[in-house]
Structure formats: structure tokens, C-alpha cells
Design a protein around this nucleic acid. Structure first.
Lengths: 391, 391
DNA sequence: ATATTAAGTCCATAAAATGGATTAAATCGG
DNA sequence: CCGATTTAATCCATTTTATGGACTTAATAT
């Protein structure tokens, strides 16, 4: 049910509208904010005052635009006080980052750890240490960590990590193993949001994060699509050929068996993505054939995905980013051949410019996003001096 | 951007919350409404007063529940005044229905017309006539038509019907050919909503509407998923086998080539779905084989759909409803074999109990749904005596 | 120097919800 | 059978929030 609006929630929501517009429209005057939001100058002024007090926005001096009349003072998001911690657990590394309210990355730490050999408890002890170091460092720069989120390589439902096959974990309530509150979310989903907030892409796209598994996150209108139980986006197990090779999921002919990291390297007869890239650059026929095959399979799976979910564009990330020059052709051609007659515009295939820490950036970004959407909650929390996040 | 809340929109939203709760919780007292919504009894009372005045709710007498204290008077949705018109254009028929605010079907009219031979202008002239007759009849029962919606067999983007291959139409702005305002929407989407509001299903499901084409509508949390451009849900062109038979969409091995009405009848060597059902009941091996093959293909396509969209359950409608006893087995087994290891719960396959007019019911239901979500708009429209819908 | 224009603040007012008091209508207990 | 109790619904003064016009401020234009 949509919640009833009361006086206090009206104010909370309008604060969010104003702050959201400040983010969207960069440094902007109070008068322009009033115009855009439809609120009066009075109301906007009062709200901007509160946000200034909380250090969430800052005045960036008079905005002399050469027009007549008194120039306005522009207010913009301030990155000096509020920040968020983003974390990621993956097969062979842990990472942490701190992002401020302007989505500037203030800190990145990555630590190579072989988590395949480790238990959840061990891994999370490591992560906790990493997080505390990051927070201490951020604090010394005057930042207050307002919250944190964690990306994990597997489907998550309400804080419970169902299964992370590449870690060998099952049904782990990850948040309970840390000494600070954290939102837990699928790595593919957060990588998609990372692309949304830190990449240059549009706000409607399907982000494909090829790693050992192949996941996808659909972003529509700036929101992540999660499905009924948060298990949507398993592009890696879309069926490319119903009688194809057996997959660890129990099916046959899943995309992962054609375009997953392991299948791809096996087909090329190489060890590691960097070696594959080198071979491709050298023009080795075996490597080229392997990529061609993977690209066509990806095109088939994406065709099904486009028919079902209708994304605006498709962004390839993960291992597909370095392989993009070789994947792009066969995948794109397959899609055009199979989609063009049904749609005016076949979604464009683009490449992610984010590196491996898309997911931890997305995690931190999500925390920031929520604060901006509901600054009232954060304001109340800080005045009540109950700082969330690690201390 | 989320819209700013002002005093008037606060009231409008709360009206919607109250009316929504009246629908959800059946006849209910003002006191209980206050409790559930979190608004005060005073506020709720005033709103219920307004809704009574508009004829949208009615008091259904004292609610004597045997408890102590003064019994409350229950208010429930009233079906006596406000109603909506639902329309449908399909290959071989036109239909219209009138549904009141309680979602009771007050009128159904179906007219067999061969629209394959007709131009949009001719067909819509027919439809307009049908609509006016339905509205006149509804009016004579004291109903006021508050709006109308139209289901068409093809993808629609912002009122524009892109392509209806089975009608031979392209880029028709359907609403412009009628003399009353109408919301136009894909038949598969509206059939899914029809299932939501008039069927008995849950509020998270994928509704498959097998007709000549195979479409699907995803309903999540009572909302329809539309994709970036409203073109989502084309299950019929999900790829079952990449080198399968050529499809009119330009691809190969689409589901439609295995489980579409034409492919299915051709494989069975029969003419018409009733004949097929008769043959299946008689146990004819050719018909059984054709259904088995279609069911397995449907299972493959649904497996991909479940991996990507994660629906709670799957509801089979259209021609798959009468064929359900024979389709259900092979499709369900295919899904379980391919999904069970990845998910705790494989979405259940169920059958739609709605007939062929699911889409026109969904259309009318959508209008009602919008009125209930925002009764303030309807209230303002009626007091300003600008009745939408045909007159 | 003066007029004009636009930004931002001030203040009285309006709209809506709130919360406590009151009235109404039932059951319970003797 | 009557008063006590309990719950529903309404009434009314109050509070919260946004509004809109007046006012002040700071710039450009003439």
C-alpha cells in the first residue's frame, strides 16, 4: 500500500525532492529550485537552510549570469561531510571504497584474498578489518560515514545470500557476521547501479557483468529491477541451445557454457583473460574463433532478454569489457538480425568504462542515493546522534 | 523526479490511500481505516464523507461484531455510480465490457468481425459503434462511465500501436480514430492485468497469453512491468533453439515456431484449437506429440524468462488454457529440471480461468484501478462536469 | 543617478492533519 | 433493568506545513 502522507512525511518528501533536484541540476539557485519543484521560494529557502546546516549542500558563491536582476547564490551538493562505505566480496579479492555525497570516490582499497578456500567467518573478519581501516582514514579527512552496503557474488533475498557457487557458500546471513549495519546485495545488481551512477551511460540499460558467472542488472528509469524475489537478471543461465553442454545449474546450453570466463578460456586454450586479450591482439585464430562463438551466444541470449525486458541499451562489463572489440561484432550482428524487424530501435551494445570495482562503487552509491532520496531520515539520525555505519 | 507534495496533493494522495484500503479490506469501519492508514479518525471521516458524496463508497449498515462498544458502520466500494469501459480489438472479434468500481462486470458485448481484411479506419468505426451502444446501455442502468481503455494485439508505445502483424497494421495512432478519449495498451499486458483483477491469482506472476502470437505480461506487486519502451514481454520470440525454423520476426527458433497457434496446429495436422482439444481427449498420438513438443519448447522459453525476470508464478492463458492438461506436464518438467538447482522455489505453472475477454476486462480494470489510486482527480473531473469517456 | 529586474527573506494566511473532548451506541455486570 | 464500560464517530481548537504577497537586496540597463 502507498503510505499516507502526514505533515511530517510531507516535509520529509519535499526535502528529498529539493535535494534530488540539487543533485540533478548541479549548483542551482533557490529561485530555480522553486520554479522546478513547484514549491514556493519560501519553502525552498527554509529547506535549503536545513540542508546547509546538515552539511549536505553548500553555497558555491554568487551566480552572476550576466542577466539583469540580483544574481542568485548557487547551492550544490557538498562532499565535505556525508559519505558512504561500499564493500565487495569476490572470488579472489575484497574491496572497499568511500564515496561522498557528490559521488566522488574518496578512497579505494583492494586486497587480494583467495576466498574460495575461506569460510564466511574468515572472509568477513578480513572484510571487517578492511572496512574499519577505510572508515578511520575517511574520518581523518572529516567525513562522516552515513551507512554502508556490501556486494556479494550471488542472489540475495532480504539480507540472506542464497548461494554463491564460486565461493562455495550457501545461505549465509552476511550482515550478521559484521559489527556494523550493512545492506547486502547481489554483485551484478550493484555493478549495474555503479554503471548508472559512476559510468556515463543512460538511465535505462541492461548491464552485463561477465565474470566467472554471467549476471545482468536491469536499470529502468534509474531504478533497479529485482523481480519477485530479487533473483532476476541471471543472464548466464538463459538458454542458448536446449541440447548444448551441461551446466552446473542442472540445465543444458546455458549462456555461461558459451560465454562464461571458464568456457571462453577453455575454448581458446588459454589461461586467464589477459592472455586471451594478448592472443586476440596477436590475431591468433583459435582465440578469435572462441570469441566469435561466445559473441554469437551472447547475442542469442541478449535477443531473448531484449524481447522479454526491453532495455534501452546494453552495457557490457566485467570480462566482456576488455574483450569488447572482439565480442561486439558477432553479438551485435546476431541481435540486429533477430530483432530489427520487430523493433524500431535495436538496443545499442556499449562497453562499460568502469573497472573491477563497479560493484563496490555501486554499493556506496546506493547508500548515497538513499540518503539523497530521504534526507530527512539522515538528518534525524544525525541529530539523534546514532551514527550508523562502522565507527 | 518524484513530485513535490503540496497541501492539495497531500489530500489527493491520502484520499487514494483511504479508498485503496477500502477496496483491499472490503467493507470496513472508519475507525479501522484510521488504524490501518495511520491517519486520524477525524481525517478519515472527512474523506469518507467526500467519497460518499461522489458515490464511490457506500455505507453498508452497522457492523455488529459481538464486541463491546459502539458498532461501526462499514463502508465499502459502491458499484452503483462509477464505471469504466474496456475495449478490445483482435484478429477475429471486437469486444466491449463495462465494469463498475467494485470490479463487477456489468455488461459484455462481443462481435465477430474479420479484422484481417479491414483497415484501421473501418475497424475503429465498428468499435466506436459498439462502444456507444455499450455506454448507452450502461447509462440506462445509472452508471457514469469515467473512462475507457483499449486492448490491441501488438506493442504500444505512448498511444502509438507500432505493429500488429496479425492485423497487418503498422504505426497506427488508434486513439485518434475514436471520438472519445481512450488509453491504448498491448493486449498481452491487459490480459495479465485482467488475470490480476478478475482471476484468482496472486499479485506476482507472469501471464502467458498464447494466441496466434505468444505474448506475456509480468505483474509484480500488482504493477505491470513495461520495459524501457513498453515493448517487454514478447515471450513468443524468446529463442528456444538458435538454428530452429525461421520466424516472421526475422529470427530463427523462436518459441512461436514451436508453441504458437499456427505451428501447433500444423504439427498436429488439425484445423482449430477445438479440434485439437478433441483429438487430445481422444488420445490421438499425433496431437499428443505436437503438444508434448510445444510444452517442452514453452518450458525452455519460460526457463529463460524465469532466470531473467524472476516471476512468482506463471499463469497460462489464451490457447494454453484449454491445452493446459497436455502442456503442463512437459513444460513444468522442463522448468524443474533446469531451474531447481538454482532456486529454492521453482515458479508454479497454473492455468487462467478467464476466457477470451481477459484483455478487455483488464482494460476496464485498469481505468478503475487508476480512479481508485487517485480518486481526487475523478472527483475534480466530475464536479467540473467534464466527463471523459464516450458520451 | 534612477529605473528595472530578479533573488531571497519576512510575515500573515490558508490548507490539511492532529489530538483531545464529546456524543452515540453497543455489551457487561450486578 | 440500569449504570459502567467500551468502542465509533464527530466536533473543535491547535499544530504543522506550505502559500502568496510584501519587502529587502543586489545586480544590470538607461
Amino acid at each position: 500500500m502507498t503510505q499516507a502522507v502526514r505533515h511530517d512525511s510531507m516535509r520529509a518528501r519535499n526535502l528529498g525532492v529539493v535535494l534530488g533536484e540539487v543533485r540533478r541540476s548541479g549548483p542551482i539557485t533557490r529561485a530555480a529550485l522553486a520554479e522546478i519543484t513547484g514549491l514556493t521560494k519560501t519553502t525552498v529557502s527554509k529547506m535549503v537552510g536545513d540542508l546547509l546546516g546538515a552539511g549536505m549542500v553548500a553555497e558555491s558563491g554568487a551566480l552572476r549570469d550576466g542577466e539583469r536582476g540580483r544574481p542568485g547564490t548557487a547551492v550544490g551538493l557538498s562532499g565535505h561531510r556525508v559519505a558512504a562505505l561500499g564493500l565487495e566480496i569476490n572470488v579472489d579479492y575484497l574491496s572497499a571504497c568511500v564515496v561522498d555525497l557528490t559521488l566522488s570516490v574518496r578512497l579505494r582499497r583492494t586486497q587480494a584474498v583467495d576466498n574460495q578456500a575461506a569460510s564466511p567467518v574468515e572472509t568477513l573478519a578480513h572484510l571487517q578489518e578492511l572496512a574499519h581501516r577505510a572508515v578511520d582514514e575517511a574520518r581523518s579527512e572529516g567525513l562522516a560515514i552515513a551507512g554502508s552496503a556490501l556486494a556479494v557474488p550471488g542472489p540475495v533475498d532480504d539480507g540472506l545470500l542464497h548461494a554463491a557457487p564460486n565461493l562455495g557458500w550457501h545461505d549465509v546471513r552476511v550482515g550478521d557476521l559484521l559489527d556494523f549495519p550493512v545492506a547486502v546485495e547481489n554483485e551484478a545488481n550493484l555493478a549495474a547501479l555503479g554503471e548508472l551512477w559512476f559510468g556515463s551511460g543512460p538511465s535505462d540499460f541492461l548491464h552485463v557483468s561477465g565474470e566467472i558467472g554471467v549476471g545482468a542488472g536491469l536499470v529502468l528509469g534509474g531504478d533497479l529491477f529485482r523481480g519477485a524475489r530479487g533473483l532476476a537478471g541471471e543472464l548466464g543461465h538463459v538458454i542458448v541451445s536446449p541440447d548444448g553442454p551441461a551446466c552446473r545449474c542442472g540445465g543444458r546450453g546455458c549462456l555461461e557454457q558459451y560465454a562464461g570466463q571458464e568456457a571462453l578460456l577453455r575454448a581458446a586454450g588459454l589461461d586467464g583473460v589477459p592472455a586471451l586479450v594478448a592472443a586476440l591482439q596477436a590475431g591468433e585464430p583459435g582465440a578469435l574463433r572462441a570469441c566469435e562463438r561466445a559473441g554469437r551466444a551472447l547475442g542469442v541470449a541478449l535477443t531473448s532478454a531484449v524481447h522479454l525486458m526491453d532495455p534501452g541499451t546494453v552495457v557490457l562489463g566485467g570480462i566482456f569489457a576488455p574483450l569488447f572489440p572482439w565480442i561486439h561484432g558477432p553479438a551485435g550482428e546476431t541481435m540486429i538480425a533477430r530483432l530489427a524487424r520487430m523493433r524500431h530501435a535495436v538496443p545499442e551494445l556499449t562497453v562499460s568504462r568502469l573497472g573491477g570495482d563497479a560493484a563496490s562503487l555501486g554499493a556506496a552509491g546506493q547508500v548515497i542515493h538513499r540518503i539523497i532520496a530521504d534526507p530527512g531520515a539522515h538528518l534525524a539520525a544525525t541529530t539523534a546522534r546514532t551514527p550508523p555505519g562502522p565507527r
